[in-house]
Simulated scan of single mutants.
Amino acid sequence: MPFTPDSELDLLFPAELISLEVKNQLHQDVHVRPLAATDYRRGHLDVLSVLTVVTDPGEEAWVAQFHAMRALPLTYYMIVMVDKNTDVIIGVGTVFIERKFLRGLGSVGHIEDIAVDKKQQGKKLGLRIIQVLTGLSENSGCYKTILNCSNDNIPFYQKCGYVQKENEMAKYAPKEHVQSPRL
């Protein structure tokens, strides 16, 4: 499949919000851009499967989720890295903006779902994803950007400029309480 330029895609947010400085640090065969409505076909879920088991909801439900996220402007910033030779996604990441009543009605950026295709790891794509997402968060006016990671990934995130702070807690809902996605 030939590379599809941003101008021909239905993007989650304007591509101009992504740092040119980071774009210029990428290999010439790699392009970073916002998630597009057609990225289901470019392997978005395949790359996410590096993180955990991914249930494929089907293209129609995936596209509905894309549109639901885009309907909340200035909230979801999902990016992808695309191999220009194949037009296939090789890296993904998300930052979403939480608006707060604290800190003078401040905002916090939450980084989630950082994944790089196993065949592409070791090429600093993860670092570039974090740089793009951190920039999007800071340019959105967030007073801090946070993320959760495994102990094994702490050194990587420290290299990205993050510091270990406090602890993470989680409580997972029983499976019978988890609802299926609604279209």
Rank of each mutant, 00 (worst) to 15 (best):
M69P: 00
L125C: 05
E112P: 13
K100I: 04
I130V: 15
Y40S: 01
A68C: 03
A115F: 09
V22D: 02
Q164E: 14
Y40Q: 04
M78C: 09
A37F: 02
E138M: 14
V108T: 14
H44R: 08
H31S: 09
A71R: 11
M78K: 08
M1S: 13
S180Q: 15
F3V: 08
E166G: 13
C149H: 03
G43F: 02
G106Q: 01
E59T: 11
V32I: 13
D6H: 07
Q25F: 00
P57F: 03
M81H: 09
L105A: 14
M69W: 13
V95Q: 02
E176F: 12
F3S: 09
L11W: 03
G141S: 12
V88L: 09
P5W: 13
A61M: 15
K23E: 09
Q28C: 08
T4D: 04
L133K: 12
A173E: 09
K144C: 14
I146L: 15
A37K: 11
A71P: 02
H31V: 09
G122H: 12
A170W: 04
I129T: 15
F156K: 05
D10T: 14
E60W: 00
P2E: 14
N148C: 12
T52H: 07
E60C: 02
L105Q: 07
S7Q: 08
Y172H: 07
D39K: 02
M1V: 11
G106K: 02
V132K: 00
I130T: 13
K165P: 00
H67P: 00
E16S: 15
L133Y: 10
C142N: 03
G122K: 12
R103E: 03
E168K: 05
V88G: 02
G126T: 06
K171C: 10
S140T: 07
E112H: 04
V47E: 07
N151L: 14
T4F: 01
L45M: 13
S150P: 04
L9W: 01
P2K: 13
G91H: 06
L17G: 03
F66H: 02
A68F: 04
L133W: 07
I89P: 03
I111A: 05
T38H: 10
F96N: 13
L17C: 02
I129W: 01
K123S: 08
G161D: 05
M1F: 10
A71G: 04
P181R: 09
G58K: 11
V63I: 15
T38R: 08
A115L: 09
D113C: 09
D46W: 00
T134K: 08
D56C: 06
Q158D: 06
R41W: 01
L136D: 07
K100F: 04
D83C: 05
E16F: 05
N167L: 11
G122C: 04
E112L: 09
C160A: 14
G135W: 10
D83R: 03
K118G: 05
E176S: 15
V116E: 04
